[in-house]
Write a protein that binds this DNA or RNA. Structure first.
Lengths: 204, 204
DNA sequence: GTCTATAGGTAGATAGAC
DNA sequence: GTCTATCTACCTATAGAC
């Protein structure tokens, strides 16, 4: 077997690493399992990525960026208030539906290495900056467009209503006695449910 | 050193195991670290608990029970609807504020071993059964007491608004530039914020 | 019951043939 | 570039002294 396109092996390794790390977490993942998943040899992992830690960082940064820019859409856009909320919910839920196991992975690894991860986010050019959005909320309150509400909690509410159903998927699946496919269908319907829930709560 | 009260050593081990498992997760926890945390020898762990897996199960079942019975309070009580919601939010948030690292641990380990954990819950006498509560929601809608809302999503909303701020604590702390003490203060205020948010959303 | 010492297994990482 | 074989370190678990 001659030499292959090196980008292909590297790509297969990254794909496999993403899959295994997301499923098992950093501590639970095995270099052996990543190699098997990629269909290559264990030694080759260390040829492309010196250490497990290096491989992890290569994929983690990329995964973080799957979420952070989506958050910035709401925080920094100039849309009218209710439209901004609706667009954020739809867009964020779509990302989550397409990556249902990602939230659990992110929050777990963030907790394992809080300062390291938080610093990585803050240094990133995609750093979430909710201040503009929270000021817009206060403006809406001040001008009587919505009821008085604490901007910090409204922001937390929006993210929580979208993200937790994916983090707690096993629990809700068990309580509702449904399978993965049915759960994702519920999440699809949920886009509109969340928007209605928030908008109704904000009306004067 | 003579023999000590055996319940004391066992208690210290369980305390230490709970702390280390919650912080590091099953895969990341080390028997050595648990022994050190308990102030006893590594060999003694295996005297009281044959295996790491056995020690884990000893504490995990107990931790699960910290949450499930609280959920049943809302699902099975006979309180008027809005009072039931308020009591649930206050009670559940109090549990979470007193155990802020528990949600991340539970959801991560549930995902690692979904069928095993879900079966353990379903077999438990504290099994969460949201059916009664969801039927009450439908009754409120039918009698025109609240706006039309999907009971499944209202139930998910209530849990999500309480639990996610703890799962995503590192993220929110980073975004808001605050420390742990300040974060818990926000969570204390949040009890009322969540109740207001839900009640306002349900009004006709 | 509590400790020390160590066995047995497996993980990440390296060396070297091809 | 890709593989096999192996090293070293660490982790769980056991054996045995006290």
């Amino acid at each position: 077997m001659g030499k292959k396109d090196n980008t292909e092996a590297e790509y297969k390794i990254l794909e496999a690493a993403r899959k295994v790390f997301i499923k098992k977490g950093y501590a639970g993942a095995r270099m052996r399992e990543i190699a098997d998943e990629a269909g290559i040899n264990k030694g080759l992992l260390h040829y492309y990525f010196k250490t497990k830690d290096g491989l992890f960082e290569s994929i983690f940064d990329e995964l973080l960026m799957t979420f952070a820019p989506q958050l910035n859409i709401i925080f920094e856009s100039d849309l009218p208030f209710f439209e901004k909320i609706e667009q954020f919910i739809n867009q964020y839920m779509t990302v989550l539906i397409n990556n249902p196991d990602l939230p659990s992975f992110i929050v777990h690894e963030m907790q394992q290495n809080e300062e390291k991860v938080v610093n990585a986010i803050l240094k990133s050019k995609h750093k979430p900056n909710p201040m503009k959005f929270m000021m817009q909320i206060q403006m809406e309150v001040a001008t009587g467009k919505i009821r008085a509400i604490n901007p910090v909690h409204l922001m937390i509410n929006m993210v929580s209503l979208c993200a937790f159903p994916f983090v707690g998927k096993p629990m809700f699946k068990g309580m509702l006695h449904i399978n993965d496919v049915e759960y994702l269908q519920i999440m699809e319907i949920r886009k509109k449910e969340i928007v209605d829930f928030i908008i109704n709560s904000l009306k004067i």
